[in-house]
Protein backbone atom coordinates (compact mmCIF):
# COMPACT_ATOMS: atom_id res chain seq x y z
CA UNK A 1 0.00 0.00 0.00
CA UNK A 2 1.14 3.50 -0.57
CA UNK A 3 2.14 6.08 1.86
CA UNK A 4 0.63 9.26 3.13
CA UNK A 5 2.43 11.52 0.70
CA UNK A 6 0.43 10.14 -2.20
CA UNK A 7 -1.22 13.49 -2.89
CA UNK A 8 2.02 15.41 -3.15
CA UNK A 9 2.35 17.16 -6.49
CA UNK A 10 -1.29 16.88 -7.45
CA UNK A 11 -3.27 19.79 -8.81
CA UNK A 12 -4.40 21.83 -5.84
CA UNK A 13 -7.52 20.32 -4.32
CA UNK A 14 -10.18 22.37 -2.61
CA UNK A 15 -9.08 23.51 0.81
CA UNK A 16 -11.97 21.97 2.68
CA UNK A 17 -14.82 19.58 2.04
CA UNK A 18 -16.00 19.87 -1.53
CA UNK A 19 -19.16 21.83 -2.23
CA UNK A 20 -20.38 18.98 -4.28
CA UNK A 21 -22.11 15.83 -3.18
CA UNK A 22 -20.44 12.52 -3.79
CA UNK A 23 -21.67 9.05 -2.99
CA UNK A 24 -20.19 5.64 -3.44
CA UNK A 25 -20.89 4.18 -6.84
CA UNK A 26 -23.32 1.31 -7.43
CA UNK A 27 -20.40 -1.02 -7.82
CA UNK A 28 -18.13 0.71 -5.39
CA UNK A 29 -15.15 -1.43 -4.66
CA UNK A 30 -13.92 -0.60 -1.19
CA UNK A 31 -14.43 3.10 -1.56
CA UNK A 32 -12.68 3.39 -4.89
CA UNK A 33 -15.65 4.38 -7.06
CA UNK A 34 -17.68 7.51 -6.41
CA UNK A 35 -20.56 9.10 -8.26
CA UNK A 36 -20.56 12.85 -8.37
CA UNK A 37 -23.46 15.16 -9.22
CA UNK A 38 -21.64 18.00 -10.79
CA UNK A 39 -22.56 19.77 -13.90
CA UNK A 40 -24.99 20.52 -16.66
CA UNK A 41 -24.03 18.38 -19.60
CA UNK A 42 -23.42 21.25 -21.97
CA UNK A 43 -20.30 22.24 -20.05
CA UNK A 44 -18.64 18.81 -20.08
CA UNK A 45 -16.39 19.67 -23.00
CA UNK A 46 -15.25 22.83 -21.27
CA UNK A 47 -14.58 20.95 -18.05
CA UNK A 48 -12.49 18.45 -19.97
CA UNK A 49 -10.49 21.23 -21.58
CA UNK A 50 -9.86 22.74 -18.17
CA UNK A 51 -8.78 19.41 -16.68
CA UNK A 52 -6.39 18.84 -19.56
CA UNK A 53 -4.83 22.21 -18.84
CA UNK A 54 -4.26 20.98 -15.28
CA UNK A 55 -2.23 18.05 -16.48
CA UNK A 56 -4.90 15.40 -16.79
CA UNK A 57 -4.35 12.93 -19.62
CA UNK A 58 -7.15 12.02 -22.00
CA UNK A 59 -7.46 8.24 -22.32
CA UNK A 60 -10.93 8.24 -23.84
CA UNK A 61 -11.70 5.40 -26.21
CA UNK A 62 -14.45 7.36 -27.88
CA UNK A 63 -16.38 10.61 -27.77
CA UNK A 64 -19.35 9.19 -25.88
CA UNK A 65 -17.36 8.08 -22.83
CA UNK A 66 -14.61 10.45 -21.81
CA UNK A 67 -11.95 9.16 -19.46
CA UNK A 68 -9.30 11.45 -18.04
CA UNK A 69 -6.42 10.41 -15.83
CA UNK A 70 -5.35 12.55 -12.91
CA UNK A 71 -1.59 13.01 -12.42
CA UNK A 72 -1.83 10.61 -9.46
CA UNK A 73 -3.54 8.01 -11.62
CA UNK A 74 -7.05 8.59 -10.30
CA UNK A 75 -9.56 8.60 -13.12
CA UNK A 76 -12.68 10.55 -13.93
CA UNK A 77 -15.33 9.29 -16.31
CA UNK A 78 -17.54 11.95 -17.89
CA UNK A 79 -20.55 11.21 -20.05
CA UNK A 80 -21.16 14.20 -22.34
CA UNK A 81 -24.69 13.14 -23.27
CA UNK A 82 -26.00 13.04 -19.70
CA UNK A 83 -23.45 14.90 -17.60
CA UNK A 84 -22.81 11.86 -15.38
CA UNK A 85 -19.48 11.94 -13.61
CA UNK A 86 -17.77 9.06 -11.84
CA UNK A 87 -14.53 9.23 -9.91
CA UNK A 88 -12.34 6.15 -9.79
CA UNK A 89 -9.56 6.37 -7.28
CA UNK A 90 -6.28 4.59 -7.83
CA UNK A 91 -6.28 1.25 -6.08
CA UNK A 92 -3.25 2.15 -4.00
CA UNK A 93 -5.07 5.00 -2.29
CA UNK A 94 -5.04 4.08 1.40
CA UNK A 95 -8.48 2.85 2.46
CA UNK A 96 -8.74 5.29 5.35
CA UNK A 97 -8.09 8.22 2.99
CA UNK A 98 -10.35 7.29 0.14
CA UNK A 99 -13.33 9.44 1.07
CA UNK A 100 -11.09 12.43 1.68
CA UNK A 101 -9.25 11.94 -1.59
CA UNK A 102 -12.58 11.52 -3.42
CA UNK A 103 -13.94 14.71 -1.86
CA UNK A 104 -10.86 16.64 -2.83
CA UNK A 105 -11.01 15.19 -6.32
CA UNK A 106 -14.65 16.25 -6.57
CA UNK A 107 -13.67 19.71 -5.38
CA UNK A 108 -11.12 19.88 -8.14
CA UNK A 109 -13.80 19.01 -10.66
CA UNK A 110 -16.11 21.60 -9.17
CA UNK A 111 -13.40 24.18 -9.68
CA UNK A 112 -13.06 23.06 -13.28
CA UNK A 113 -16.82 23.32 -13.73
CA UNK A 114 -16.83 26.84 -12.36
CA UNK A 115 -13.92 27.81 -14.55
CA UNK A 116 -15.78 26.41 -17.50
CA UNK A 117 -19.03 28.22 -16.69
Amino acid sequence: MIEDDRNAGAPAPSSGPAEVQIRTGHSCYRGLTWDCELTPRKSVDLIIAHLLSLGFIDESRGARVRELVHPEAHRVILIPSTGRVQLRLHYLTPPEKRREVAENFAGLLLGAARAAA
Binding site: H26, S27, G62, R64, V65, R66, I77, I79, P80, S81, T82, R84, V85, Q86
Partner: peptide, 15 residues
Protein backbone atom coordinates in the same frame (compact mmCIF):
# COMPACT_ATOMS: atom_id res chain seq x y z
CA UNK B 1 -25.81 -5.62 -13.68
CA UNK B 2 -22.47 -3.89 -13.29
CA UNK B 3 -22.29 -3.08 -16.98
CA UNK B 4 -25.86 -1.76 -17.08
CA UNK B 5 -25.27 0.54 -14.12
CA UNK B 6 -21.93 1.85 -15.33
CA UNK B 7 -21.31 5.30 -16.75
CA UNK B 8 -19.81 3.59 -19.78
CA UNK B 9 -23.22 2.08 -20.52
CA UNK B 10 -24.90 5.44 -20.07
CA UNK B 11 -22.49 6.98 -22.56
CA UNK B 12 -22.61 4.20 -25.12
CA UNK B 13 -26.32 3.37 -24.93
CA UNK B 14 -28.13 5.97 -22.84
CA UNK B 15 -29.95 6.21 -19.51
Amino acid sequence: GGILLSPEWEGLVGP
